[in-house]
Nucleic acid binder design. Structure first.
Lengths: 197, 197, 197, 197
DNA sequence: CATGAATGAGAATTCATTCAT
DNA sequence: AATGAATGAATTCTCATTCAT
């Protein structure tokens, strides 16, 4: 029963924080940000409303943390070897990871999309580093397609983006219960890789 | 002096209704459904809060009306000649119309997407006839691709849907400022037509 | 198609007025005064809200008219021969009428009671002549019991009033669906007559 | 400094709840349910409107709580010894208690009556246990009168109910200013006891 | 006489946030 | 660190009443 060490306290704090964020991610995604109340989140997390404010200064701060840290994780996943040049192998790898994430982190996708889509949300994110990462990434893609000799790299960036983003939307919203059998997803993945490898 | 005729009253009602819906469509799209208050909508429409409720029973009912009637209009636009068989010509026509709508009714798109994406919104639409229309339409596409001799019509429906839906998302959200020069959009449109005509 | 005569117009007006009052009586009684809206009343009557205000200056005026005219009617029914002296025969007659009214005008009873009971309603009626009539009537009863040689006429007025009013309440509220078979009511009526004739 | 214990919180909640209900009982009774606003109740209680909703989900829920808990208390008061058999002594005791309550809890009576009388209120109570209690109680009375050898026990239940309920109404509404001198009430009470003991 | 669109004042309700304990 | 009572500002919704036609 010795008093907890600084590190232990830190860990508890961190776990709580993550726990709150996970619950919120889930609820925001399934119930909608506006419809979720702090009371709901607290109850689901099993803590008091007051304690929520020890971890996040406001409902909005909680949202921002989820988005930012989530995107960060995703971007890190995709981060090519930072030399700024995408090889065919790295490209394939990237596509594979995208599909893996889509399959496994469906819930983050839902939130990401549903929240990003909220008018006025973008403003909150505009100056965040994540946006720069995305832009930088698109730049790398542009160069990849140029190097590959495509007539209009812009058109290919657009096509690729649309095919991926479109799939996400369809998975998440339009036919959520629809099956998307693994076989079909694999074919779709394969098609993209063949188009652009 | 004489009381208004039924027709006159009908017209007033209809005009107001449309007017409110247009204002709401615009505001929901730019400010977000949750952020819009009835007071805002009323002020923008130039009427009293009370009158809003004369036309729509609740904020949610207003939203539903916009979605439903909007989707209806869009679906009617695409309505092939109802024999249930899609010819190559009709298919091309359909794609052309989709892009035309995307270009001109961008605002409806924004709302449609941003709202459809709101968790809990789908439930409202589940039993609405519009959903059946969409399903029916996908069925027609399936048959079209089968007739055309594609190996996996399912994969083609998915690809086509994703390419269109994905473009919509990109136009509206992800790179709204990236102007999607007409030239680029035309190339994208042409590509789709060539893939599937 | 000659223009309607003054008298005809007057009659139409009067009929409408009565019609509105009947509808309102019914709705106030079954739905509660506060819960009834002018819109409801107008719709049920089959006229416009605006027209309601041609006949009654306000919702409250309508209520007052119903109460006052209704009570008036009832009181007239009971009006003994105005010499201010109640004979045994007149007393029996009075009791008989009371029970007849209770049986037939149940609905007016409901409204009368439910409305009279509303706190703040009495104030509206305080100076109305109807109140004087009631007081005068109680006075006559007092004299009747005195003449009959009852020890404490006050106690008898109270008992009689309670037995009648109590029955009304029970019929209307406490056991509305309960039958109160005619046989039972008749026995109750007979008992009262025997107690005081 | 330390957080409040569960018991402390429980007590605060309980006290507040009771406080709100008492204020509401008083105001509903004197001003009428429909005329009372949450703002009024909150101001009188000395708390914020918001807190009202912390304790009761709606104005109606508050009303229901008052009625239900109040009736419960009253019924408990009258609860005979639950063997389901009423002795003469118990009967007399019951009548005494009724009159005591009428004299002391006049305010609850007013509310009970005025509210029970509101059309649409009964529906709320229909399935509540209190209704069963009342029915059960009437059953016990029936048996009492049967055992006592009355010709038509039904008639006696009706008479007794009417005499009591009628007195309540009269006290509360019809002649509130006529003070019902104690002497008169005692005579009335004695009369009932003599009729049925 | 008749209509129902329109108003506006007010009512109920919600909820992020604060704070005493 | 932890709690949930308490606040208050904002928001949705209601409805008697007015008025142009």
């Amino acid at each position: 029963m010795s008093p907890r060490t600084k590190a232990q306290i830190e860990k508890i704090r961190d776990d709580r924080r993550k726990q709150i964020m996970n619950v919120a991610l889930h609820l925001f995604a399934t119930e909608g940000y506006a419809h979720c109340t702090i009371a709901m989140l607290a109850a689901r997390t099993g803590i008091s409303k007051g304690l929520m404010y020890h971890y996040f200064n406001s409902k909005e701060a909680l949202l921002e943390a989820i988005i930012e840290e989530g995107l960060d994780e995703v971007m890190n996943l995709f981060d090519p070897n930072r030399d700024g040049v995408l090889t065919s192998r790295e490209f394939i790898d990237f596509i594979r990871k995208v599909f893996a994430v889509m399959r496994s982190d469906k819930e983050f996708w839902v939130l990401y999309v549903s929240v990003i889509m909220q008018p006025r949300v973008k403003e909150h994110l505009t100056d965040k580093p994540i946006i720069r990462s995305i832009e930088q990434f698109l730049q790398i893609l542009m160069e990849y397609f140029t190097r590959k000799g495509f007539d209009d790299p812009n058109l290919e960036v657009l096509t690729l983006s649309a095919m991926i983003e479109g799939l996400g939307i369809l998975m998440v919203y339009t036919y959520p219960e629809m099956k998307f059998p693994d076989e079909l997803l694999e074919k779709y993945e394969k098609r993209i890789i063949e188009m652009y490898q």
